[in-house]
Simulated scan of single mutants.
Amino acid sequence: MSRLHRRALLGAATLLALPRLAHAWPDRSIRLIVPFAPGGGTDTTARIVAQALTERLGQSVVVENRAGAGGAIGMAQAAQAAPDGYTLVMGHVATHVVNMAVQRNPGYDTARDFVALGITSTAANILVVNPNRQSGINTLQDFVAACRAKPDELSYGTAGVGSPAHITTALFLRTADVKAQHVPYRGGAPATTDLVAGNLDFMFSGASDCIPHIRAGRLRGIAAASSKRLSGAPQIPTVAESGYPDFAFEIWHTLSARRGTPPEVLAKLREATHAALTSPQVIERITAMGVDATPTTGEAAQQRVDRELARWVPMIRAAGITAD
Rank of each mutant, 00 (worst) to 15 (best):
G85F: 10
S155L: 01
P151G: 02
D142F: 02
V102R: 00
D177A: 14
T44Q: 11
Y108T: 06
P164W: 06
N132D: 12
G118A: 10
M90A: 14
P106L: 07
V115S: 13
I126K: 04
T110G: 03
I73A: 03
T54G: 12
C147Y: 00
G91D: 07
M90P: 01
T122Q: 13
G85D: 11
F172G: 01
I126P: 06
A82M: 11
Q80N: 09
R148Q: 11
F114C: 10
A94M: 14
D43R: 10
L127T: 05
L57F: 08
K179E: 13
E55A: 13
P184L: 04
H182M: 01
G107N: 10
V93H: 03
G70H: 08
Q134F: 08
T120H: 06
V128Q: 09
V89A: 15
N105C: 08
H182F: 01
N65V: 11
Y86P: 06
G107Y: 14
K150T: 12
P164F: 06
A79N: 10
A46F: 02
P106I: 02
K179L: 05
M100S: 15
T110H: 06
S121W: 00
A146M: 09
A81K: 07
T95G: 12
K150I: 00
Q51N: 15
A46P: 03
D84I: 01
R174A: 11
T95C: 09
G118V: 10
R112I: 00
A123L: 12
D109H: 15
A76W: 05
D142K: 05
T95M: 13
N132W: 05
A170W: 02
D43K: 11
A76N: 07
L57N: 04
G107L: 11
T45F: 08
A52T: 04
G85E: 11
A52M: 05
P106H: 03
Q141R: 14
L173C: 04
L154C: 00
D152L: 12
S155E: 14
T158Q: 03
A94R: 15
R148T: 08
Q134V: 01
A165L: 07
T87L: 02
E64Y: 10
L57S: 04
Q77C: 03
V89I: 15
A52S: 07
V49M: 00
V161F: 10
N125L: 09
N65Q: 10
T169V: 03
G162F: 07
G74Q: 02
A159R: 09
A111K: 09
A124Q: 00
A69H: 07
V161T: 15
Y86D: 07
N125V: 08
V98A: 08
P164A: 04
A116W: 00
V89W: 13
P83W: 12
Q103A: 11
D177K: 13
G58V: 10
R133H: 11
V161S: 09
Q51W: 12
N65T: 13
G71A: 09
L140A: 04
L140G: 09
A101H: 11
R112T: 13
P164V: 02
A123P: 09
D142R: 00
M90I: 11
A50S: 15
L53E: 02
A145V: 02
F143E: 06
M75G: 10
V62P: 13
Q103C: 04
G157S: 01
D109T: 13
A111N: 01
Q134S: 03
